[in-house]
Structures are given as C-alpha cells and as structure tokens.
C-alpha cells in the first residue's frame, strides 16, 4: 500500500485535539509540560466539558498554559493556584476546576495553600508537574531535588545534611482526609501517557462530582535544567526519579 492510500481522513486514528490551540508552545524541545498539556486537552475534549472547565495557571514554566488549551483560565500568583481554585469552584460549583503546578510552585512557595486546600477537601483537581527543579528561573534546587542531584544552587549536588530530603509531598497529601485520589504517573512512554490520561480523567470527574481533592503528580523531565538531551532525561528520570518517587496510586476512595 502506498502512503497516499493510507493517509486518508477515514484512516486517521490520532492527531492533535482542536482544544489545543495553534499557538506553538514555548517549552524547550522535549519538555514533559507539552505532553501533559496535550493529555489534559484530550480529556476535556473527550468529556465534552470545555465550556465549564476552568484551569488555574501557575508561575513557573507553565505560566502561559492559558495560551495553549482553549478553555477559561485564571492566572495565580506563585504557589497560590489551590487558593484561587478554591474560590472559583466554590463560586461556580458546577464547573470543573483544576490547577496546573510545578514542584517549586506546589511544594515550596505554595506548600501552605496546597496542604490546606487538600485538607479542606476542595473539589478541585491538582495536576502537579514534578521535574525536581525550578525550570523557569534557570534550574535552581527545589524541595523535590534528589539527594546528590546537581542544580545551579547546589552545584556539588544536594546535600541532605544542609538542605534536607526530597519532599514526598504527594504521600503527605494522601494521608489528609480531604483528598479522594492521589496518584503518581509519568509521560515518558506511550503506555505511561495512557495511564496518566486515565488519571487526569478520574481527577476531573472527581471535581465534577464534588468528591474531594484529587492530586495527579506527573514525574517529569526538565532536560534543559538537567542539562541532558530529552531522551537522556527520560532515561535519567527512570533510573533516578522513579526510585525516589515511585509510580502508582497512593490513594483512591
């Protein structure tokens, strides 16, 4: 069969969802943020809830998320996305509301907002991109940076005697009574993207059904900050990030 015979509309099985805008994403080549944006857009499209979904964009590399998924958005101050999401969901209980946050945003400056929103059981979904680093500002150490991992602010590697241990914040959030679903996923393979997509769907459904707070951590790469190629970064993530942040459901009730 020739390519022309295969490339016909009736044979199309996968492509860009129209909910992802035509605006090229500003992320570095190979960045996990793009994959996660794509999955969120696909789920919103498939659930047919674009008209009633509100995203809260963070400060961090995903600060322009509102340019890429064609839904309503609000932009939060650094770390405050769960507080803003609380307001949006309480004022518009029929809306599906999610935050999109990096590890610096969620687990450093926004720790209080994150913990208290989860403890109050706000009916929101939290999508947490854990790349173990402050990507946007040039690759500084985050609370999630691995022991021994080199960043701009720990050039000799994170020393736990000085800087503490990698913060397993999703495990902490899972023990709070307000969370209904806490899971840790990744997007480095086709199979992993399928699992993450299911998790995103469950989290958005929980928001629609007011079941409590859902947290979907996506263990991610920041190949620029890690100073690796995208493929090397995926391998490094599997070998180093996954042992510290094992994938799977932490809670599902």
């Amino acid at each position: 069969m020739t390519l022309e015979e295969i490339i016909k509309p009736e044979n199309r099985i996968y492509g860009k969802t129209p909910l992802l805008t035509e605006t090229p994403m500003h992320y570095c080549p190979g960045c996990s943020h793009g994959v996660v944006h794509k999955l969120i857009a696909e789920v919103i499209e498939e659930m047919n809830i674009a008209e009633k979904t509100v995203g809260i964009a963070p400060v961090g590399c995903a600060v322009f998320a509102y340019n890429y998924i064609d839904i309503d958005w609000q932009e939060a101050a650094h770390g405050r996305a769960p507080a803003l999401a609380t307001a949006v969901k309480r004022l518009n209980p029929d809306n599906c509301v999610f935050t999109y946050q990096g590890d610096g945003d969620l687990a450093a400056i926004g720790t209080a907002e994150t913990i208290h929103a989860c403890n109050r059981g706000e009916n929101i979904a939290i999508f947490f991109i854990n790349n173990g680093i402050y990507g946007m500002t040039g690759g500084q150490m985050a609370p999630t940076t691995l022991e021994g991992m080199k960043t701009a602010t720990c050039p000799n590697g994170r020393d736990v005697s000085m800087e503490g241990y990698p913060l397993k914040i999703s495990d902490m959030l899972a023990i709070l009574d307000g969370t209904c679903y806490v899971t840790r996923q990744a997007v480095h393979t086709a199979a992993a993207t399928a699992r993450t997509k299911k998790a995103i769907r469950k989290a958005l459904e929980n928001s629609m059904n007011s079941k409590g707070t859902s947290v979907v951590e996506i263990v991610s790469t920041c190949n620029s900050g890690w100073k690796m190629t995208p493929h090397q970064a995926n391998k490094w993530m599997v070998e180093n990030m996954f042992p510290a942040y094992p994938l799977g459901d932490l809670k599902d009730r």
Partner: peptide
Amino acid sequence: TGCASCAYVCPDACITVYRVKN
C-alpha cells in the same frame, strides 16, 4: 504499523497517525 507511540509521546502534538488493516 500505525501504533501511534510516536504521537502519544510528542510534546508538541505534531503527529497525525493513519492506520489501515492490511
């Protein structure tokens, strides 16, 4: 084979996949 693995992992949603039964 039209398995779409490439398209699922593409961060920029660049890839459209077509598949036929042969």
